[in-house]
Design a protein around this nucleic acid. Sequence first.
DNA 1: TATGAATGAGTATTCATTCAT
DNA 2: GATGAATGAATACTCATTCAT
Lengths: 195, 195, 195, 195
Amino acid sequence: MGKKKGPKYNQIIDAAVTVIAKHGYHQAQVAKIAREAGVADGTIYLYFKNKEDILTSLFEEKMGRFVETIRTKIESCQTVDEKFLLLMTTHFEQLEADKQLAIVTQLELRQSNTDLRLKINDILKGYLTLMDELITEGKESGYFDPELDNRLARQMIFGTLDEVVTNWVMKDCKYDLSALAKPLHQMLLGGFCKR
Amino acid sequence: MGKKKGPKYNQIIDAAVTVIAKHGYHQAQVAKIAREAGVADGTIYLYFKNKEDILTSLFEEKMGRFVETIRTKIESCQTVDEKFLLLMTTHFEQLEADKQLAIVTQLELRQSNTDLRLKINDILKGYLTLMDELITEGKESGYFDPELDNRLARQMIFGTLDEVVTNWVMKDCKYDLSALAKPLHQMLLGGFCKR
Amino acid sequence: MGKKKGPKYNQIIDAAVTVIAKHGYHQAQVAKIAREAGVADGTIYLYFKNKEDILTSLFEEKMGRFVETIRTKIESCQTVDEKFLLLMTTHFEQLEADKQLAIVTQLELRQSNTDLRLKINDILKGYLTLMDELITEGKESGYFDPELDNRLARQMIFGTLDEVVTNWVMKDCKYDLSALAKPLHQMLLGGFCKR
Amino acid sequence: MGKKKGPKYNQIIDAAVTVIAKHGYHQAQVAKIAREAGVADGTIYLYFKNKEDILTSLFEEKMGRFVETIRTKIESCQTVDEKFLLLMTTHFEQLEADKQLAIVTQLELRQSNTDLRLKINDILKGYLTLMDELITEGKESGYFDPELDNRLARQMIFGTLDEVVTNWVMKDCKYDLSALAKPLHQMLLGGFCKR
DNA sequence: TATGAATGAGTATTCATTCAT
DNA sequence: GATGAATGAATACTCATTCAT
């Protein structure tokens, strides 16, 4: 069980995204996912331990490279300032590139029970670590306020990005999301106040 | 039906909060709520139309005055700066005052798929309007950057507050939440950068 | 209990007829009957043992005089032939006089469980006896075939009358029912065949 | 869903007949039918849309050929007189052949309030048409009174047959039903009166 | 590997009846 | 007598998971 191999593994995950995006979390039965994937119900259980495992694997597969992509990209930047802008831009671009997936991760999977949400948080932990490193770097380089509370700053960045993406998804993804990175970057780093 | 009167009405709502906080949204059966409230299953239906009506009434009863309380409190403030600080402090204090309720509204009720989410959004709409007014006031008074995008600023504030509270709840409410208002206020208004 | 006295007793029975005719047997809850009667739910149980007792009492009260009326009327007739015609005419006239009641007895009460239907049959027993007497009289007077099987003849008469009335009710009582007595009388006594 | 194939489909229908005949319509729970059929509750829903679908399918499967059988049989008869006798005999014989089924169709299924009654009426409609044709044929051949009212004659035949069968069922099917066809035939065609 | 038929635990809601006032 | 708030038993249907083929 759990043979994370073969084309069917990915077929099933993609089918889950499609079904959840189309019918919603509570109407995404295993049988429906199996039909969408073109396999028998029982086949699902050759690749996944149970239904929850489909959802967490979905999150892992689809979001696993999410953070890595960001980390790689910002390496090329010189300043913390630039790094932050690129982090946000890349965050938005990646979600903008797969709107169906955005619906699933921003809206539908949040209806799942608390256990699944804890696993999602685990996956996000790498993202929070990255932000933490950036904040520390900013503080050490003298660019950020040295009194900054890392945890709060991190929650502020993540909470903001998440809320902005969720609003975009709820407005049917019909405006340019990555264009918002720049003004947000300015607001996060410079605050609301005039200088 | 729907008598919305008598001590039993409140007994049942309080029982629902207790049961959901203790067992989670998906394990909060009507029978369990009835037992906790000390009434028969059928009695629930003398006071509520159906199970969902319990949850929406819970939200209305418990959170209905949330925004109004904040709006009233900040009226006494002179400056936008003070208003923002008081908004955040009051936001945190109200949730801190009933930790069980915080668990229910921040984590459990978000798993619902129904009209309840619409009702939650209704309440939030009033909150977003209030934030909007504050932001505009800040811009007009020359305190905020006149180029500030209201929608983004609003999402930044709300996303930050929500994320901070959710983290506090997931850490079992074991630190002082309202004490975070001040540093957050500084970060939101002044940004991460040193001045 | 079961004090078959007072105006409320009749109020409740009339309310039951109205409610059943309007909403159907399966939607005729005790609470609905009580409201229609203008009494409290509990009051019903001062006059009736239980819900089934309302229905059997309804049948007794409303249909009890049914047979007696027929019996009295046909006493004035000279011949069996006349008696039969008058029996059928009176049967139809009585049901035609209260169409709501006809709906209840012909359609709705038949959906009741087998126990109630047995009680209804008890009440009808007097009617069958009357028919039996008439058939015997017809045979003894030499008017009917002496070989006639009383039981079958009785079932034929009752089955025919019942089916004719039921069809009339299902066609919304919109044609003249008692006018059918005469041709039916001729068919029952003379048969389908030409003479 | 609704595979209408395989031995289980018939097992379930037969179990429904058995359970309803034994415990009555209102005590025929799905779980009881499943146990009698030797399958799990959920299996029922692989073969039937819902509980009502079991009952309508039961009626279709068991009574669907009822009228057709009669129609085929009487084709071989020469005279209307013979046709009528055979119609009645076949009607009785078919019900006599499965007494449990007779209980279900004559008594229990009549307590239903649903589409089932419409379905029953549909089947009966074909029967009434057949009777109509016979009556017309009798009139045209000069055998029946040309003044005969088809509708009334039809209701008289059907009402009589139905009443006779119902009485037989209520007397626990303990006498010879089809033997009654002959005397009834004589009474219907020749009337009660001596000739 | 793959199938898909079969499983059976789990739950919101109705409504006849009671009984304290 | 009269009330009506409270009771609680009873039931169809879904769907994640299994296992014989």
